[in-house]
Design a protein around this nucleic acid. Structure first.
Length: 554
RNA sequence: GGCCUUGUGGUCAAGCGGUUAAGACGGAGCCCUCUCAAGGCUCAAUCCCGGGUUCGAUUCCCGGCAGGGUCACCA
């Protein structure tokens, strides 16, 4: 059979370069020997999820801890999946979490010499190589229809044989020259398949960067490499692209492990040295009694938007993911609480071989810690960012008053001091925590645990002596002084000795004042809250707390 | 079902033939305290099951069992 002629009949020559040209167009990269070139290669569906972030972080860290390159390639070989604006969305989402690309699709960079970074725009490169494979007898056309293929698959399933296009089932593999041209003459659509040289009798010991030695069976499937629309399948495109974009480390989900034999054979047939592969385990979730992969449909927490809307601190999400990526990151982070996570020596080899269960409690803890370490200004910026996008109109108005909010944050969050509030894991919680500092959102419920008489006496007595100039101890002394007027213990020690002698104690006095002033039984230091509110508003709230009671009584 | 892969407390996990089997999150409790938060201290909780190999197995081998992945002209 004249393969050269067949190749030309199948794939027209026009516009195609000879394959050896590409080695010069895309020369090896001028980087350090140990530098890794990694990539994120999403399909442009626009949906970027936690798993993508997880993987992207591994890519980005691998590249940037070795002075390498991290680039973005868009795998748009499947027309059906395309969504407008998806690429920008991917870039934006990752940027929000502090992950940036060095080169690639829609990235402005002088490094962009390995493009185009959209697979559809690389069609002629693929075609040149497919054509070459046909000429060398490594590929052939297949005219089987979808129905025929399905019928074979059913037959194979029924006979409990391995499904697929191989051996005796690869009918088009042995088509005669005249049959091929006859089909072509009739205008039958065709795909190009790999003419596999492998056998499932052979086992390959493969060294995965994460999983270590993995035993896989050699490929014997004549997989499709060029679809009937002239666009390659993922398998083929990735082999070409990762070779010519000079990728050194391919990090991808473990769902790809089973197609690794195909990729290995493809590289061999193409004459390429395969990159190193690292197959990551997927993020799991507890559902009922068992673990399962995080699902786009069922689990809102898979979406990155979920974390933005919920107001998680973006760096906290990244740090949490880092703990999953390299388990010793957490220990390092504990020792270096203020260090940038980028200073940690990430290594792909240290990644877990088994799947990690996504643990919201742990994320919350990391987020709490991160937020607690913010300065008042940083905290303000973070909360304001969330408020601008997701806050209520009242929130937005409040955040215009930067000076006041920062003063409040310093108290409420304990920022700048030793007593850090560490129970805020999401922006919204922080925003709600300062509601009572604004009169329009001060919505007290007055859930006093004492009778109206006692409450009114406490509030009235305090009002008499209240002086905003008091420091904490003077303030507290006044609180204590109220105790005897309502039969409470002024000293905690007295109360503990003989609790039956008193109706309550100082902390109960403080509680009554607190409820009147903040509307809640719990709050940060009351004395400081009063000082921030100012004399007028404090007095007003104390009076309002009383009148409320009276109304209830009537 | 075939093939690949994983199995240490509730969760993430150190450990790589001899350990009191780290640490973190979560849980329980105590202390401190004007409440909350924070902080300090304490406690409970783990080597999937059987067989080997070995003086000795959580660690090595085999077999179960249980998870996970995959079997497209999708990536």
């Amino acid at each position: 059979m004249n393969l050269k002629k067949l190749a030309s009949a199948l794939i027209p020559d026009e516009g195609l370069l000879s394959i050896d040209k590409y080695e010069h167009i895309y020369p090896p990269r001028d980087i350090a020997p140990k530098a890794e070139v990694t990539r994120l290669a999403p399909s442009p569906t626009g949906f970027i999820h936690l798993g993508n972030l997880y993987s992207a972080l591994a890519d980005e860290r691998s590249a940037h801890t070795t002075d390498g390159i991290f680039y973005l390639r868009i795998e748009d070989t499947d027309e059906k999946r395309k969504v407008d604006g998806a690429v920008e969305s991917v870039i934006r989402s990752l940027k929000y979490f502090g992950i940036n690309f060095d080169e690639g699709a829609e990235i402005q960079s002088p490094l962009n010499i390995y493009g185009p970074y959209y697979q559809r725009r690389r069609a002629e490169i693929y075609r040149a190589f497919v054509k070459d494979m046909i000429e060398r007898g490594y590929a052939y056309p297949c005219f089987c229809t979808e129905d025929e293929l399905n019928a074979v698959r059913e037959k194979q399933t029924g006979e409990k044989k391995t499904t697929g296009y191989y051996g005796e089932y690869a009918v088009c593999r042995n088509l005669s020259e005249s049959e091929i041209y006859k089909n072509l003459g009739e205008g039958k659509p065709f795909v190009i398949r790999l003419k596999s040289q492998g056998s499932i009798e052979n086992k390959i010991i493969f060294r995965d960067a994460i999983k270590g030695e993995v035993t896989v069976t050699e490929n014997d499937q004549d997989v499709v490499i060029l679809k009937s629309d002239g666009i390659p399948t993922y398998h083929f495109a990735h082999a070409i692209d990762d070779h010519f974009m000079r990728t050194t480390l391919v990090i991808r989900g473990e769902e790809w492990l089973s197609s690794l034999p195909v990729h290995l054979e493809l590289h061999k047939a193409l004459g390429f040295k395969p990159p190193r592969y690292a197959h990551t385990s997927s993020l799991m979730k507890m559902d009922g009694g068992t673990k399962r992969k995080l699902s786009k449909r069922k689990d809102p927490e898979l979406s990155l938007d979920y974390y933005r809307k919920a107001g998680y601190f973006p760096k906290a999400v990244v740090k949490y993911l880092m703990t999953l990526l390299n388990s010793d990151f957490e220990e390092w982070s504990l020792k270096n609480p203020t260090a940038d996570y980028r200073d940690f020596k990430f290594r792909i080899e240290k990644m877990s071989r088994s799947g990690a269960l996504f643990d919201l409690d742990k994320l919350n803890d990391v987020s709490r810690t991160e937020i607690s370490m913010l300065s008042a200004v940083e905290c303000f910026e973070f909360l304001k960012g969330w408020v601008t996008e997701f806050g209520t109109p009242a929130d937005k108005a409040h955040f215009q008053n930067e000076e006041y909010i920062i003063k409040v944050l310093e108290l409420v969050m304990g920022v700048g001091g030793k007593k850090r509030r560490k129970d805020i894991e999401r922006a919204e919680q922080g925003v709600r925590l300062i509601d009572y500092f604004f009169d329009d959102t001060f919505a007290p419920e007055y859930s006093y645990r004492f009778d109206a008489q006692t409450v009114n006496t406490v509030l009235g007595e305090f009002l008499k002596t209240y002086d905003p100039a008091d420091d904490n101890s003077a303030w507290f002394a006044k609180v204590k002084a109220i105790a005897p007027t309502v039969g409470f213990a002024g000293e905690m020690s007295d109360y503990k000795k003989e609790p039956e002698k008193y109706k309550g104690n100082v902390s109960d006095i403080a509680e009554i004042l607190r409820i009147a002033v903040t509307g809640m039984p719990n709050s940060p230091d009351l004395c400081t809250i009063m000082r921030i509110l100012g004399k007028e508003r404090t007095a007003e709230r104390l009076k309002r707390g009383m009148s409320k009671i009276k109304k209830k009584q009537v």
